[in-house]
Nucleic acid binder design. Sequence first.
DNA 1: CTGAAAGCGCTAACAC
DNA 2: GTGTTAGCGCTTTCAG
Lengths: 400, 400
Amino acid sequence: MSGSGTRSRSRVKEPSRHLALPSASAAAKDRVHTGYDEDPKPAGSRPTRAATMQDIADALGVSQSTVSRVLTGSPMPVPINPATRQRVVEMARQLHYRPNPLARGLRGAKTMLLGVIVREITDPFFAGAIDAISLEAGKRGYNVVLGHAHGRADEVIALRAVLETRHCDAIIIVGDTSDQPRLLKDLNETDATVVGLWQGSAFLPGMPTVNVDNRSGVMDLIDHLIGLGHRSFGFIGGYFTFAGGRELGDINEREIAFVQGLAERGIEVSPEYICDAQNNYAGGAASFAELMALPRPPTAVMASTDVLAIGALRSAHRLGLQVPEAVSVVGFDDLPLAEHTSPPLTTVRQPIAEMAASAVRAAIGDLPERGSDDSEPIIECLKPMLVIRESSGPARPRDD
Amino acid sequence: MSGSGTRSRSRVKEPSRHLALPSASAAAKDRVHTGYDEDPKPAGSRPTRAATMQDIADALGVSQSTVSRVLTGSPMPVPINPATRQRVVEMARQLHYRPNPLARGLRGAKTMLLGVIVREITDPFFAGAIDAISLEAGKRGYNVVLGHAHGRADEVIALRAVLETRHCDAIIIVGDTSDQPRLLKDLNETDATVVGLWQGSAFLPGMPTVNVDNRSGVMDLIDHLIGLGHRSFGFIGGYFTFAGGRELGDINEREIAFVQGLAERGIEVSPEYICDAQNNYAGGAASFAELMALPRPPTAVMASTDVLAIGALRSAHRLGLQVPEAVSVVGFDDLPLAEHTSPPLTTVRQPIAEMAASAVRAAIGDLPERGSDDSEPIIECLKPMLVIRESSGPARPRDD
DNA sequence: CTGAAAGCGCTAACAC
DNA sequence: GTGTTAGCGCTTTCAG
């Protein structure tokens, strides 16, 4: 059967297709003139073109659909002759066959790509987040496409790019984006599922979101500090350059929780005890110095992120201030570095892995086997955990 | 002309396609079964299906190829009636038309995706590298697909995934992979360009690679230290868990340069002065402690990465050793954190941005406008720069 | 068990 | 200027 009506659309190997096939079938008359390339191979660079199913079919004298059936995977809807199957598989390997995901995608298959939009990879916290997400995604056979916002203006563009290029089955937005109204609007025009992670309180209605319970973390910190005798506090907020000076969701929530929580404990904090800085080491250092320069500096400083806290620690060292003897410093996040600073940082640990897992689950569904469970909450809010180390200690006696 | 033979493949909106079209156009008579969408929208979940060119064409009563010509971009090979163009553009917007990259890709278009395989995103150095790469790629309209190796076994798999899913036009491999022979072999079967970044000396012959000049950096450090009077050195090498205990390319090169460079200056270092550790803060701390526990501890410790050096700094602090008075500590990389440690770290700065730019250029060619320049070297090796801060100082007088 | 045929959404060579 | 036609590589009926 390999001789006669075996083709129709079964195109023939032309000189143009640089792929050494075992044999050339006899259907040359079928061609109209594809005009597709008389071997314009530029300059001995690219290796041979990837083999297609048709190549395998032609080489074997079977139909392309048979090849497809064999190679297409397990849920064998149609029984196939073991012998044929065997030959196909063999030839596939021999030809280094690789399925073309684009073609599969066109037919409706998933791309197995998860888009992740993030503000700063360079921020150790987000780096960890990506790590966790990509690990989780990997478990489900997904790869991560990074939509990286290096600056305010770029963000929208990055996102558009990931969207325009609708390669992604789903998208996770990491970090607050309330300053990017268009971004979220755009997202709604995608057919991909969009979920938010660490969106602070700024999530979009209807968008599945997973957050940390910032208030809970801050309260733990406050109670810990108050328990140590502190009554005078400083706060370092943080923002990213391109957020237009606005604080971002989570950090903003932490600041509010700080002020409110203290108030609930009968402690008022005046505005000069609250600093804002760029969310990086230098910003934390500068703010800390500002706080210490106050007429009556606080005995405890709470930084809204570990990065800021680490900057503060450095600043204290430079100022000759012992931590925690002279001032206590606490952070938020519990970065890997937090236990290796001098002194090790008291902070609040975010359940990054769980949060990432949750977000990924919301984005691309449960592990392959399981069915979807629509009863899940749209907004999840996980509690962080207080981690007491050495940067917090008894309040030094007030001077007054 | 819009009336007669207008379709053939111009398929009709069937109930299955949930897309609300503005009007039924004159081509309605063509329809075989107009029921164009009883809006069978499942259950208020997914928004409407993305519009296709055909949808636009049908709505306007023009041919799909006309739509394609209009929407396909600038290099207008064929003149189009401004009026038609206008209507098409308008309808496209109205229908929220988004080109389907998969279909375009099938037709041979680039995916505009750059694969990046990296060992650890969590390592601040690599995080910075990704940042730089993604920035550079963005300038060319490319997005980054992360192939993340969370552990030894996974690496090959991650890579395969990125390859299997041949979405990427090119791939950059960040970090040494000589322990992954299969990986590089696999890569050769791809039709995407593969370039190596920080491959150490382990690059694959023929694969474009860009590296740092590790020897040059180490020599700078050595000379700096010798200039300060140091004669007794310790070295902290590093490896990743899954590299099977082997040191990785760059780190390995640094160790060799360390030993050789010192030898050239007439200084021999015995093996116990060379420690290996996992390349993280804890590893650096442990190795430093080991070194200090030696009968005659070195007066200067060179860590092969800043991460290790930062761990060492922490260890020194815990041991009550002043840096640099008691010991000098130097690193390699110049992480953002390096200038915010206590004391700020003397290290060697890698030209990350330039290296990333170089790699991206090698991977996806020059900026859109420019033509390709084949005269470039396959292997580039950039020189790092010594950055002297406060963690290095005069050698303390020898006890003997 | 296997082949033929119809597209997925888009580009491009060819007609009028 | 615009329509027709042929696919890109693969999945999926529908017929044998």
